[in-house]
Write a protein that binds this DNA or RNA. Structure first.
Ligand SMILES: NC(=O)c1ccc[n+]([C@@H]2O[C@H](COP(=O)([O-])OP(=O)(O)OC[C@H]3O[C@@H](n4cnc5c(N)ncnc54)[C@H](O)[C@@H]3O)[C@@H](O)[C@H]2O)c1
Ligand SMILES: NC(=O)c1ccc[n+]([C@@H]2O[C@H](COP(=O)([O-])OP(=O)(O)OC[C@H]3O[C@@H](n4cnc5c(N)ncnc54)[C@H](O)[C@@H]3O)[C@@H](O)[C@H]2O)c1
Lengths: 260, 260
DNA sequence: CCAGCTTTGTGCACGCGTTCACAAAGGCAT
DNA sequence: ATGCCTTTGTGAACGCGTGCACAAAGCTGG
């Protein structure tokens, strides 16, 4: 069950743009769109980099992968760059998206206006709960999970969003993939196993918070060096160790780090 | 207005764990917790790596930064590792968190059970809307944004979640930071500018979708090599360009890629 | 037409992260 | 007690990503 085999399948780099650059293009696009709305005709790499929160050299190198549509001494034409990046990201076409799992999060996503703004269209909302089916969320009728495959096929959906509980995520994922979905955005806290050629990106709130907590603890530990961080307390892991095996000695004791 | 200066301020590496490793620790922890609930006493790096979806050598190296609590020929003690990672991530203590912006998303977050499960506690919900103040969401009373500073101080909050519209995010961020918050999880689609020492992590749905769209387009382009990807059609960008300015010439025409 | 200024595009070096491969370590069976 | 087998911990190589620094390019003013 869920062997967890994902090799980061080739991703891009087929004949061009590095993955790190692809991840920044939406950032540039957003900044450029804002400039466009303010009718700014051109921007320098320095200005745009500041707006996107990146290094200007990095930005220039990123754009060079697209073919570099800049003018030396002047900068980049905003409108033209907006179009070029949009085209590169595939936003000039319409991407129908299904959301599976219309609970707290799924409903919020359905109500989110940020979808339609950039080429994404919520084609269907799907949930396994029979009492939800037929209800309308964000002006779209929730359909029962039984018709998942048909919905995917009818709408030519290739991008799916999973917002079900973790326990159902792999199963939903399998059905989506079998029905033809090749890109998945996963909000459930699970590692999804997918065949090669299917892209999975995850959004995981818990992980983000835990990373923040780590740094937070680090900061606190640096401020107050004599706290309880460095000092190895004899306090055992509470109810952590259920069946204490043949522990060589250190329980909450000295870390016993003995480099070879 | 949002000069966008963020240098990736030192982050970790102060005296140890690489950032990439920190980002994976929550993943390991989740897999280990699942094993713990099934009363599995030990795991090999191979098994655990599979469950977490990573390379086993990477996992072993990651654990080596923690001090390597494994037994050769056997593997790692699940319970002990759960405790060690939890301690390293700072999850053995309680982190009060405030959520600012109780709209669609903020309410979903407040209702999310995944917070309390791992040391995080929603200390307060804050919104600027007077009609929301006093209402109860997820059993917690929404407080007005006027009291933000007081709430932060009273609860000793150091982690803040921003779920307001993009336009308010920087302003909310500034107030949070001024009030003492040093870690921010931002859901608004904006680049936040913060002073050094403050960590910001962002969750951006639009960016994730756009990255997926890029790969999706790439896949489609590879399948049908004679489509409209490589061939530069004379078709204009449809409704993409709102106000067509003094375009230098190429509209949907030949890309004019002229390498130096 | 030329000089000077601005800004791009990129060669290069460096550091981080990933992965392979293997020696050392420890348990277990005999 | 000894040898075998499993698995860890890590040295080393490699590749990607980042940022510096600069030459080339293009605009503008004279
Ligand atoms: N709410 C949040 O803020 C938040 C934050 C981070 C992560 N998450 C994760 O997102 C997921 C959804 O969270 P939520 O709070 O919306 O949960 P929820 O319980 O409110 O909603 C889950 C929905 O999925 C539906 N569902 C269950 N099994 C299904 C299936 N097999 N097919 C189709 N639909 C199915 C349920 O009927 C329910 O409507 C969870 O995995 C949660 O861990 C939520
Ligand atoms: N809904 C989603 O699924 C989703 C997905 C991705 C990103 N986002 C982003 O998350 C943010 C919130 O989305 P949403 O759908 O919940 O929007 P929303 O409009 O439903 O909620 C925003 C809330 O923020 C409050 N607010 C506004 N200014 C404030 C301020 N200065 N201080 C405190 N509170 C303030 C508003 O009163 C409102 O209740 C937006 O930036 C959106 O782009 C939302």
């Amino acid at each position: 069950m869920a062997t967890g085999r994902n090799h980061r399948p080739a991703t891009s780099r087929s004949r061009g743009i590095p993955e790190a650059t692809v991840a920044r293009l939406p950032l540039y696009l957003r900044a450029l769109t804002a400039l466009s709305e303010r009718s700014v005709p051109t921007v320098s790499s320095e200005e745009l980099a500041a707006a996107a929160g990146v290094n200007s050299a990095k930005l220039r190198k990123d754009f060079s992968y697209l073919g570099s549509y800049g003018t030396r001494g002047v900068g980049y034409d905003v409108e033209y760059l907006v179009y070029q990046i949009s085209r590169e990201l595939g936003l000039t076409q319409d991407w129908p998206v299904v959301i599976v799992g219309i609970g707290n999060l799924g409903a919020a996503l359905a109500n989110y206006g940020g979808f339609a703004s950039r080429g994404f269209r919520v084609a269907a909302l799907i949930d396994a709960d029979p009492t939800l089916a037929g209800r309308t969320v964000a002006g779209i009728e929730v359909e029962h999970a039984d018709g998942l495959e048909q919905i995917i096929a009818d709408n030519g959906v290739s991008i799916g969003v999973i917002a079900t509980p973790a326990g159902s995520a792999q199963q939903v994922c399998d059905r989506l993939v079998a029905a033809g979905v090749t890109s998945i955005l996963n909000f459930a806290p699970t590692v999804l196993s997918v065949p090669e050629g299917v892209d999975v990106r995850k959004v995981d709130l818990s992980i983000e918070l835990q990373i923040l907590a780590f740094h937070e603890q680090r900061k606190a530990g640096e401020e107050a060096p004599e706290e309880e961080e460095t000092a190895p307390p004899a306090a055992p892991p509470a109810a952590a160790v259920t069946k204490k095996r043949s522990e060589p000695g250190p329980d909450g004791d000295v870390p016993a780090v003995m480099p070879a």
